[in-house]
Design a protein around this nucleic acid. Structure first.
Length: 806
DNA sequence: GTGTGAGCAATTTTT
DNA sequence: TTGCTCACAC
C-alpha cells in the first residue's frame, strides 16, 4: 500500500533534466522545435522506441537494456508533445511494484508539472476502476454487481468452492477445492464464462466442473464479490456486450502502453485488443526470452504473434545491455539459443573484461551451501581482490524451488551470515492480517458472509461447526445474511446457553462497530484498534506462546498504521486486496535468497545459481507436464537467472541432494552443457561423483562443457554420457530419465527392472534410493516404496510385500 | 467443541 | 524432512 497517493515527489537523483523541468504549457511546445533534454543519453534504439508514438509498436527489450527508461521516457514524451493528457494514457503493468516504479520515474522525468497518472497501474487495479463504474452491467437481469463489490483473494475463493463441492456431495478428498480453483482460474484466464466452456471441458472435475463454475459465479454475484480472474474477464465481457461503453474507454485512452507483454494471458490480450482496436496506438514491451509464467496462463504466443495481430507494427529491439559483463551476456545468449520459436535478439555491451561465469559441482547440497557461504564471506571481507569488498546487499542466491532455500538458511544461520528471503507469503496472506481484515469487512459490510465465517470463532468463542451450521440454516430459511441469521438464532433460542451468550456478545459488538464504521466522526484508525481489542483478537495473540506470536502482533500494528493512509475503512478495504505488498524497506545489509521467478526484473552484482541438476532444474515436473514447451520455459528461467548478474555469476550443482528426507543423487543440468565453454570457468571440485577425493578424472573438464555450440543434442552431453556409461556398467537399459538415484539399491530390485504396481500397472524402475523406487509407469513417473511393487514377471505372487529391504 | 497423533503429499506465484 | 488434513479421544 505504500506509494498510494504519495510517491510522486521523489527527486533524489540528479538527472540534468529535473532541474530544467519547467511547466511550460505542453501545447505550446512544437515537435522538434527545441531539444528535449530527456531524450539525451538514449541510445538509437531507445530513442526510436520513444519517438515511434503512433500505431502499434512492439518493443523487444532484452534483460538490462533500459526498458523501463524507454517506456517512461515515452510517456513523458507523449505528455510533453501534448499528444495526450495524463488521464488519456493507459499504462499497464503486472505488479504494483512495477506500477509504482513507473509512476515515480515518469514524475521524475517531468517534474512536478504533471499530476499522477490515474491510468497507470496493474491490469487488475485498472480493471477494478473500470468495473466499479459499470458494475450494474455485470450479471444477469435480476442479479448484478454493485459498485462496492469486494474482491476475494485465493483463500476466500477456495473456501467458497469447498462449500460448493460439499453441497454437491462430491468427495472433496478426490476433488479438492484447490484444484477446482485452478481450473476455474484457467477458464477465466481464457475469458470463458460458464456458458462459453468448450464442449468437453465442462465435464472436467469429475463431470462437475461446468456446473460448479456456474454455481460459483452465481454465488459471487450474491455476495457482490469478484475474484481476481473476474476482474479481467468481466471487463472483457463488459466491453464485448456494450459497444458504447467500450467506445467511451477507447476514446479516453489515446495511447496504450503495456509492460511485460510476454506475460499476458488470453484475457489480458483480449482486454488490450478491445481497447486498442480503434486507434491502434499500442506499445507493448516485453521479452519473449523471459516468459516464465506459462504455468499460470501466460501465452508467449501473444508476443510472438504481435506483428500479425497488429499488421504494420513496428518492431524495435533493445539489445544494448547496460547491466552485465560480456561473459555473462554470452553465457546467457548461448544458453537461450537452444530455444526454438524465439523472436531473436542478441544482447551486447560496450563494457569489456569481467569475470567468466563460474561453474562448480559439489558432493551434496550441504557442501554447496557451505561453499557459497564461504564465498560470500570472502566477498564481504574483501578477500576477492578483483571484486573488492562487497556489501551483502550486492549478493543474491537464486533457486528454482523454494525448498532449496532451507540448506542456505540453515547454513547461514550457523555461520551467522545475515540473509533475507524475498517472496514467501505476502503480508496480506498472513492469517492474522486476513482475520483482522475480516473483522473490518464485517464491520463495514454486515452481509459479508465469508468474513463472518472466518472470524465468528476466532478467537475461540465456543462457536464451532455445529453452531455455524445452525446459523447457516437459520439464515438460509429466512433469507438473511449470516450475521443477521446469527442475531435471529440468538433471538429464537435455537442455540444452547453458552453458545447463545457468546454469539449474542459477538453480534452486539459487531453492531456497535458497524454503527461506528458508518459514523464519520469516529476515527477509523481508532475504530480498527478498538475492534481488535474488544473482539479479543489482540489478546488471543498476546496469550499465544508460540515464537511467531510477537511478529503477528507487529503485523497487526503495521496493518493499523497502514489504515492511516486512507480516508476510512471502506476506502482501505476497496484497495487493499490489490495493493498490499510485503516490500519491507531494505536498510540492513543482508544476502538475498529468492526463487528465480521472484528475481525477474531485479539485478545484483554477484549472483549464485545453485541446484543446476536435471530434474530439479529443469524441473522434472515441468517437463513431464509440458514436454518441450516446459523445457523451454525452464531454459528461459535459466536465462533470467544468469542475466540478473552484473559482475559475477556462479552456477553450481550437487551430486546428492536431500529431498523429502532422503538423499537422492542427480546429474548436472542439461543447461550446463548448453553454456558456451569460452565464457565459463570451471572450478574443479575435488572428488565429485563418488570418485572419492583425488579421483583421477576431473569430473568436469572445461572442454566437456560444450562440445558443439550449434548442436544442442542433450544425448551427447557429458552428463548424458556419464549416465549411459553408468547404466552400461550395470548392464541395464538406458532410459530417458534425468534423475538417477544411486544410493544403495533396494536389495531385490535394480534400475531397469520391470515391476508391477496394484494401481499404476506395469512400469520400469528408473532409480532407487534406499527403499524408495522411482518408477516410470504408462501414466508418468512415480516415487514409490519398494514394498508396494513386485517384479513384473511374478505379478500376483504377492511375495514382494513380505520382505521389503530395511 | 477442542486438542492430539497418524497418514499423506510435496514447483514456480501476481492480482 | 516438514506441514497439513483428518480421525479420534477428551
Amino acid at each position: 500500500m505504500r506509494g498510494y497517493g504519495a510517491g510522486m515527489s521523489n527527486f533524489d537523483d540528479s538527472d540534468a533534466f529535473e532541474a530544467a523541468a519547467a511547466p511550460v504549457p505542453l501545447s505550446q511546445r512544437a515537435i522538434g522545435a527545441r531539444p528535449v533534454p530527456y531524450l539525451d543519453g538514449l541510445n538509437p534504439a531507445q530513442r526510436a522506441a520513444v519517438e515511434a508514438l503512433d500505431g502499434p509498436v512492439l518493443l523487444l527489450a532484452g534483460a538490462g537494456t533500459g526498458k523501463t527508461r524507454a517506456l517512461t521516457t515515452r510517456i513523458a514524451h507523449l505528455l510533453n508533445l501534448g499528444r495526450a493528457r495524463p488521464g488519456q494514457i493507459l499504462a499497464v503493468t503486472f505488479t504494483n511494484k512495477a506500477a509504482r516504479e513507473m509512476k515515480e520515474r515518469v514524475a521524475r522525468l517531468l517534474g512536478e508539472a504533471v499530476e499522477g497518472m490515474p491510468w497507470l497501474g496493474t491490469f487488475h487495479s485498472i480493471s477494478v476502476k473500470i468495473l466499479r463504474r459499470h458494475a450494474e452491467l455485470i450479471g444477469d437481469g435480476e442479479l448484478h454487481l454493485k459498485p462496492s463489490f469486494t474482491i476475494l483473494d485465493t483463500d476466500d475463493q477456495i473456501r467458497l468452492l469447498r462449500q460448493l463441492i460439499l453441497a454437491g456431495n462430491i468427495d472433496e478428498k478426490r476433488w479438492p477445492a484447490r484444484q477446482l480453483a485452478h481450473l476455474i482460474d484457467s477458464w477465466k484466464n481464457r475469458c470463458l464464462s460458464p456458458s462459453q466452456l468448450p464442449r468437453g471441458e465442462e465435464r472436467a472435475f469429475d463431470g462437475w466442473g461446468g456446473r460448479l463454475y456456474a454455481a460459483y459465479q452465481r454465488r459471487l454475484l450474491e455476495l457482490n464479490a469478484t475474484d481476481f480472474g473476474d476482474l479481467l474477464m468481466h471487463c472483457v465481457h463488459l466491453f464485448q456486450a456494450h459497444p458504447d461503453v467500450l467506445r467511451s474507454w477507447q476514446d479516453r485512452f489515446r495511447y496504450i502502453l503495456v509492460d511485460e507483454y510476454q506475460d499476458t494471458n488470453v484475457a489480458q490480450y483480449m482486454w488490450l485488443r478491445l481497447l486498442a482496436s480503434a486507434h491502434r496506438n499500442i506499445c507493448c514491451v516485453g521479452d519473449d526470452d523471459q516468459s516464465i509464467y506459462g504455468w499460470r496462463g501466460a501465452e508467449v504466443g501473444n508476443i510472438l504473434r504481435f506483428e500479425s495481430d497488429f499488421p504494420g507494427a513496428q518492431v524495435i529491439r533493445l539489445e544494448q545491455n547496460y547491466r552485465s559483463t560480456p561473459h555473462i551476456l554470452a553465457a546467457a545468449s548461448g544458453l537461450i539459443a537452444a530455444n526454438r520459436g524465439r523472436l531473436g535478439k542478441t544482447l551486447w555491451t560496450e563494457v569489456e573484461g569481467g569475470e567468466k561465469v563460474r561453474l562448480i559441482g559439489h558432493w551434496d547440497s550441504e557442501a554447496e551451501a557451505r561453499w557459497i557461504g564461504e564465498e560470500i564471506e570472502a566477498f564481504h571481507g574483501g578477500h576477492r581482490a578483483a571484486l573488492g569488498r562487497r556489501n551483502l546487499n550486492d549478493i543474491a542466491i537464486l533457486v528454482r524451488a523454494s525448498h532449496q532455500m532451507r540448506a542456505f538458511e540453515d547454513r547461514f544461520m550457523t555461520i551467522g551470515l545475515p540473509y533475507r528471503v524475498i517472496g514467501g507469503p505476502r503480508f496480506y496472506e498472513r492469517a492474522e492480517i486476513r482475520d483482522a481484515m475480516a473483522y473490518f469487512r464485517l464491520a463495514v459490510s454486515p452481509a459479508d458472509d465469508l468474513a463472518f465465517e472466518r472470524i465468528v470463532n476466532v478467537p475461540k468463542r465456543g462457536l464451532g461447526e455445529k453452531a455455524v451450521q445452525t446459523i447457516q440454516r437459520e439464515a438460509r430459511e429466512r433469507n438473511l445474511s449470516l450475521l443477521e441469521g446469527a442475531v435471529s438464532t440468538v433471538a429464537t433460542g435455537a442455540l444452547g446457553g453458552k453458545g447463545a451468550a457468546a454469539l449474542r456478545q459477538f453480534t452486539e459488538a459487531m453492531g456497535r462497530w458497524h454503527a461506528d464504521a458508518l459514523d464519520s466522526r469516529v476515527s477509523h484508525v481508532e475504530l480498527a484498534e478498538r475492534i481488535l481489542d474488544e473482539s479479543g483478537y489482540t489478546a488471543m495473540w498476546q496469550n499465544d506462546k508460540s515464537p511467531d506470536a510477537p511478529g503477528r502482533l507487529d503485523n497487526l500494528k503495521e496493518l493499523v498504521k497502514a489504515l492511516e493512509e486512507f480516508e476510512n475503512l471502506q476506502g482501505f478495504l476497496e484497495h487493499v486486496a490489490l495493493v498490499m505488498d510485503n516490500d519491507s524497506g531494505e536498510q540492513t545489509d543482508e544476502v538475498s535468497i529468492m526463487t528465480l521467478h521472484a528475481a525477474k526484473g531485479l539485478e545484483y552484482p554477484i549472483v549464485f545459481l545453485p541446484g543446476w541438476e536435471d530434474g530439479l532444474f529443469p524441473s522434472q515436473r515441468s517437463m513431464d507436464e509440458s514436454g518441450l514447451k516446459g523445457l523451454e520455459e525452464e531454459r528461459r528461467l535459466a536465462y533470467v537467472g544468469i542475466t540478473r548478474g552484473r559482475e559475477l555469476v556462479t552456477i553450481s550443482f550437487a551430486g546428492n541432494r536431500r529431498m523429502y528426507g532422503q538423499w537422492q543423487s542427480s546429474l548436472p543440468s542439461r543447461f550446463i552443457d548448453e553454456l558456451p565453454e569460452d565464457h565459463v570457468e570451471v572450478l574443479t571440485p575435488p572428488g565429485l561423483y563418488g570418485g572419492g577425493y583425488g579421483a583421477a578424472a576431473q569430473p568436469f573438464a572445461p572442454s566437456a562443457i560444450h562440445e558443439r555450440a550449434a548442436q544442442s543434442d542433450v544425448y551427447n552431453s557429458p552428463g548424458w554420457k556419464r549416465m549411459q556409461q553408468r547404466s552400461a556398467e550395470r548392464a541395464q537399459p538406458v532410459h530417458r530419465t534425468p534423475i538417477v538415484i544411486d544410493a544403495e539399491p533396494a536389495a531385490r530390485f535394480s534400475v531397469g527392472d520391470r515391476v508391477f504396481h496394484q494401481k499404476f500397472g506395469n512400469g520400469t524402475i528408473m532409480g532407487i534410493a534406499e527403499d524408495t523406487l522411482t518408477v516410470e509407469f504408462a501414466t508418468g513417473f512415480k516415487t514409490i516404496k519398494a514394498g508396494y511393487v513386485q517384479p513384473a514377471s511374478q505379478a500376483g505372487s504377492g511375495g514382494a510385500m513380505d520382505d521389503v529391504p530395511f
